[in-house]
Design a protein around this nucleic acid. Structure first.
Lengths: 143, 143
DNA sequence: TTCTGTTGTAACCATTGACAGTACAATGGG
DNA sequence: CCCATTGTACTGTCAATGGTTACAACAGAA
């Protein structure tokens, strides 16, 4: 199973928002054009990013902008903003194991800390990468 | 999005296979009873684990057994066995970004190595945990 | 050989989440 | 008051998951 394309899509549009902030009004249609994704999808995504405090969106007049310094927007921030975090857990348990079985009774407890370590490892790495890194790499391609 | 419950389910049944190997014939029905999951689901899962060389399943006579020393079965082995690996990539890209846009044209390249680092971090942690660790923890609960 | 319990699979169904697309009311600057 | 734009409701398609029934293939035991 894969992490939904909302994540890479979000990185893409935030990068766009910064890259084109001086030359264009960055609307959902503008972003839809760069990503080749339906404008409504973009708006919904912007809504999630706004809720997370990562971007600002102008109702009425239109246009979205980044709400923080680029090096303070980590991939983890974006990941948590766009992936269903109320689920929170990366790993999914089969519910209702048999309590009469010693394995079924304890498997959840035993796995919990181990799987948390895995999730932590992933999140640590995610938090070490920021949009500033993306912009820096992008500049190389634009030379 | 979550990693499918096949993963935790697989850890569960492999743990069962070892725990009960001396006292029971470990059939798909037996495993279904401990996990509270349909026997057919178990058989399909056993098929994947067998293909990966982690377990052996006896046709006809019935019963499944672990095919390797427990400390040589890592969570990564199991993860790769049961998660669609032909996909391979943890992160999913929106396809067809606009090549006329400098961001759309380069975003995939820019993100690839960064996201690979994240995936690597997760897989490293997964490969550091083995079924032997699970069994060791289980023993504590059984005292 | 026949009987028996089991595996491997096919076929089908229900549910869920992702992503797409249409439509339109609400918004706020010009 | 316009008008471009956002926010959101509703509908639809598609793929993956997990469940269930059914049954042929299998291998050991009687």
């Amino acid at each position: 199973m894969q992490i939904s394309s909302r994540f890479t899509l979000a990185v893409h549009i935030i990068t766009c928002m910064d890259t084109f902030k001086n030359d264009y009004k960055v609307t959902s249609d503008f972003l839809a054009s760069s990503t080749n994704v339906n404008p409504v999808i973009i708006r919904r995504l912007l809504g999630q990013l706004k809720t997370a405090g990562l971007v600002e969106v102008a109702r009425g007049s239109g246009g979205a902008s980044v709400a923080r310094p680029l090096d303070e927007i980590t991939f983890l921030d974006i990941y948590k903003a766009v992936e269903c975090v109320e689920c929170g857990e990366l790993f999914h348990f089969h519910e209702n194991p048999n309590n009469k079985c010693p394995v079924g009774r304890n498997i959840h407890n035993i796995l919990d800390d181990k799987l948390n370590r895995v999730q932590q490892a992933m999140e640590n790495e995610l938090s070490s990468i920021t949009i500033a890194d993306v912009i820096k790499d992008l500049d190389k391609y634009l030379v």
